[in-house]
Simulated scan of single mutants.
Amino acid sequence: MQLVETHAHIYLDQFEKDLDEVIERSKELGVEKIFMPNIDSESIDAMLELEHRYPGYCIPMMGLHPCSVNKNFEKELYVVEDWLNKRDFVAVGEMGTDLYWDKTFFEQQKEAFNIQSKWAIDKNLPIVIHCRESIDETIELVSDLKSENFRGIFHCFSGTLEQASQIVELGFLLGIGGVATFKNGGLEPVLEAIGLDHLVLETDSPYLAPVPHRGKRNEPAYLDLVAQKIASVKQITKNEVAQATSENAQRIFN
C-alpha cells in the first residue's frame, strides 16, 4: 500500500528532535512522498533543508499562509515571487484565507489570494488552499478566478456536503485529514457522497492528529488512520483508498 501525504509541516520545531524516526515511521506505514506547504519567509530555509536531506521524498511548495498576511504582506509576497521565479516548486501554497483568529486583514488576505492564484495560473501550478472559517468566501474567490488550468486542493476540508460539491464542481480536490476521524467532525456525509477521484489524504502535521492520537503531535505515519476511516465509511478496502488518493495527488502535483 502506497500513501501520499499532501500536506505536512514537518520542518517545524516540533520535529527537531526525532525527525529521522518520524520519516522512518512514515515509510514503514507506506507513505511514499510528503508534500510540504510553506508558511512565510521564516519557514523557507527549514523546509528546503528537509528537501535536501530527503530528496524526492520531502517535496516543497511555495506560498504565503493567510495567518502571515498583515499590513506589510507585499514584502512577503516579493519573497514568494522571487522563489517561484528562480526554481521549480510543485504548487503555490499554503495560501488562502482565515477568519478564525482575526478578521483585521481579510481584505489583504483576499488580495494575496488573488495575486498568488494568478502566479499559479501563469506557471500552470496548482494552489493549496487554507480556508479556516472561510470556506464560502474562498469558494467565491476561486469562482471569480476560474480558468482552464486553475486547480488545486482545499486543504483540511471540514465543510458541508454542499460546499464539497461546489468545490468539486470547480475542479478542485478535497484534502481529507484527521478531522475525518473525530466523533463530531461531520465529514461522514461528505465521504459517503463524494467520489474517491476528488479526494487526497493529508495530516497537516503537527496539527489535528487523528483519533486515537487526538490532542498529541500529528505525523505523516498517521495518514494510515485517515485512509482507514475513509475505507470504513465507503465500505471499501484501505488499499483502494490509498491507490485512488495517491493517483490524485501525483496528478495534481504533476
Results as ranks from 00 to 15, higher is better:
Met1Gln: 13
Glu5Ile: 05
His7Ser: 13
Leu12Cys: 13
Phe15Tyr: 02
Val22Met: 07
Glu24Ala: 15
Glu24Ile: 10
Lys27Gln: 07
Glu28His: 10
Glu32Leu: 12
Asp40Glu: 02
Glu42Ser: 14
Ser43Tyr: 05
Leu48Tyr: 06
Leu48Ala: 08
His52Gln: 15
Cys58Glu: 12
Ile59Asn: 00
Gly63Phe: 04
Val69Asn: 00
Glu74Lys: 13
Tyr78Asp: 15
Val80Ile: 13
Glu81Trp: 09
Asp98Tyr: 01
Glu111Ala: 14
Ala112Asn: 01
Leu125Trp: 11
Arg132Gly: 03
Glu133Gly: 08
Glu133Ser: 15
Ser134Lys: 01
Ile135Leu: 10
Glu140Pro: 09
Leu141His: 10
Leu145Pro: 04
Arg151Gly: 03
Gly152Cys: 07
Gly152Ala: 04
Leu161His: 08
Leu161Gly: 06
Gly171Asp: 03
Gly175Cys: 12
Gly178Tyr: 02
Thr181Pro: 01
Lys183Pro: 09
Lys183Tyr: 12
Gly186Asp: 05
Glu188Ala: 14
Pro189Asp: 07
Leu199Val: 10
Leu201Ile: 10
Ser205Arg: 00
Leu208Trp: 02
Arg214Lys: 01
Glu219Val: 02
Pro220Ala: 04
Tyr222Pro: 01
Val226Arg: 00
Lys229Thr: 11
Val233Asn: 07
Lys238Gln: 15
Asn239Pro: 06
Ala242Thr: 11
Ser246Ile: 10
